[in-house]
Write a protein that binds this DNA or RNA. Structure first.
Lengths: 361, 361
DNA sequence: CTGAAAGCGCTTACAG
DNA sequence: CTGAAAGCGCTTACAG
């Protein structure tokens, strides 16, 4: 009922329309809380920031009021005063989608209910200006910290830049590249060794390896772990059984073609990631080589692909979500200077499916 | 060299250590720019916000100074004063990883160099509290706007909540669900029709369909588009040839088992997404039914999986990155109230690979 | 077209 | 343990 039509509005009705003259649900500010809790805004600020310099009773009174009005401090006001934000950046360079998404879920696990949010920043490390791009991103948004995902996490120049401008960061990598408080180490080497042990234990002796690009630390580690573990068990890989590829499906196809074309085929292939393992599947299927009867295959990453191939691919799994969670929580815990004691570490493990069996000699 | 140890520090040296008494590279503020350009800070503010109320000469002088000192306004100060941020939220509910990542790339394409950043917010729409979660997210961060990705984009209650609190949003969906200025329409129906026409043109007559869950709008559209297109060409799908599954690999396997177990097999199967199509591959491979010789298969999504299966899967592609770019740019362009004229629209198309051929009757 | 004042909601630095 | 003042870097509302 439009107001204008009521020629003589009853005062009572008018009052009901705007009861108690209280802004409907305007967000409370620190001043409101201070007034309602009968303290100064500075004391409320201390409670917000968990300062020990507040009397227990005072703290409880303030917290009760905050809870009652569902108060949360304005991140922009805090950001302005603190000169830094409550934003965590995730910087990455085009690994596979599932990896990125799992990593994001992990980071979000860590910051849930902390008042922090996740800002994503994919970049292209082949572009020489990409470090400047990250620099601008960090400065502009006054990021609380950034997580560096492989492969950008391996770029020392990036880490140096962040250290220079005093931005906290955490790096996820297959080996330690920095002080412990900044590293989440994934030990890819151990995962590759487990794959090697598995194939050897099945009875394979003529084994081939498709590696990722040697410029990738993870590829180097996976290769070294695999070769060393076999060597420990008395199997030396001849150079012809090691083919370097590019971590892509197509490069895996090309590598598998080389490996499977001769008349002396290996009985098993370990691929440095699942994409390349899928390439092996394609070549084998096309050539009528049946997996696992005539060829065993192991991948790395345990991507969604692994369980969708047929036969399902055995693959080394990295706990990506955990890695993301740990990398993000390192940023929340540590003060910029303070070094935490323990270095974070995570272990890969082999997920056995249907792509391997003893060789048919 | 610690200062205390130098008993008589040479004044000249001390001066060299802090040359010209100018803060090394402290970020300039609006006040610095105002002083250097010899205008008031308000005028600088006008230039920043592209106000027309600035003399051309003045504007150029201010812009020159801003450029010279590489000045960008502090997003927190602006956020505080404006009461809203320069953050775009992306809200989504667990579709596949590649979809999410492509969507993120698209959104980032749109906001590049705009001063906006992308904040991700995955959520679980089966959780009844998820709308409150989005509410808090939006209010807390004072988001400039949010993009709603399927399937949360289909939830009218979510859209209503956002409209209620005056938050701008854009919705990506297979059909129009809202005013044109807020929709990116993907026309899944047309893509499914193209798949139907393709199979029919190859000569298939006994065709089966594995649909996604009927509660998904996209599944409904894909099914309708496929069935109608076949009907137009004189092929009616009997009920037994339509199996509802859950958009997952496993559900695709189960559906394919039903479809391929009888002795009267269809000669072609259209799956509502690639995950389920991969399930068809698994069943066919296991049963010794060769693709495409004995069975043609078409998927939907053109996920990475499609080209990694063997034979490579023909699949309907949605321009996901474009969808993300358009959805994000809609948020940047429009003022909260202003309705843009055209509705955004995007078309799927069939990517033909090696999974289909004429039936072997 | 331009500017001086007040304010956004917090914090730091200083007192007590 | 608590508080009054000043300030973070912008904008709005008001003048001119």
């Amino acid at each position: 009922m439009p107001r204008k039509k009521t020629e003589h509005p009853a005062p009572a009705l008018a009052k009901a329309a705007a009861p108690v003259r209280q802004a409907p649900d305007k967000a409370k500010t620190i001043n409101d809380i201070a007034r309602l809790a009968e303290v100064s805004k500075k004391t409320v600020s201390r409670v917000i920031n968990h300062s020990p310099l507040v009397h227990q009773e005072t703290r409880e009174r303030v917290e009760a009021v905050m809870r009652q009005f569902n108060y949360t401090p304005d991140p922009f006001a805090r950001g302005l005063a603190f000169r830094r934000s409550f934003l965590i950046g995730m910087v990455y360079d085009n690994p596979t989608a599932q990896y990125i998404v799992n990593m994001q879920y992990g980071a979000l696990d860590a910051i849930r209910d902390s008042g922090f949010e996740l800002v994503v920043h994919p970049c292209d490390s082949r572009n020489p200006g990409y470090i400047d791009g990250v620099h601008r991103f960090v400065q502009q948004q006054k990021l609380h910290g950034v997580m560096l995902v492989p492969r950008v996490s391996e770029d020392q120049a990036l880490a140096d830049m962040l250290a220079d401008i005093g931005c906290r960061y955490s790096r996820i990598a297959s080996v330690s590249l920095d002080e412990a408080s900044r590293m989440v180490i994934t030990h890819d080497r151990d995962g590759a060794a487990e794959a090697a042990d598995y194939l050897q234990s099945l009875g394979h002796r003529d084994i081939a390896l498709i590696t990722g690009p040697s410029s990738y630390r993870s590829a180097h580690e996976r290769t070294a772990g695999f070769v060393e573990a076999l060597s420990k068990r008395g199997i030396e890989l001849p150079a012809a059984r090691i083919v370097e590829a590019g971590y892509t499906f197509e490069s895996g196809v090309a590598a598998a073609e080389r490996l499977l074309s001769g008349n002396q085929r290996p009985s098993a292939i370990f691929a440095g990631n699942d994409e390349m393992a899928a390439g092996v599947y394609k070549v084998a299927l096309r050539a009528g080589i049946s997996i696992p009867q005539q060829l065993s295959v192991v991948g790395f990453d345990d991507s969604p692909l692994a369980s969708r191939l047929w036969p399902a691919l055995s693959s080394v799994r990295l706990p990506v979500r955990d890695m993301g969670r740990i990398a993000a929580s390192m940023l929340l815990q540590s003060e910029p200077g303070a070094a935490s004691v323990a270095s974070a570490s995570v272990r890969p493990h082999l997920v056995v499916r249907d792509s391997c069996q003893p060789p048919a000699y």
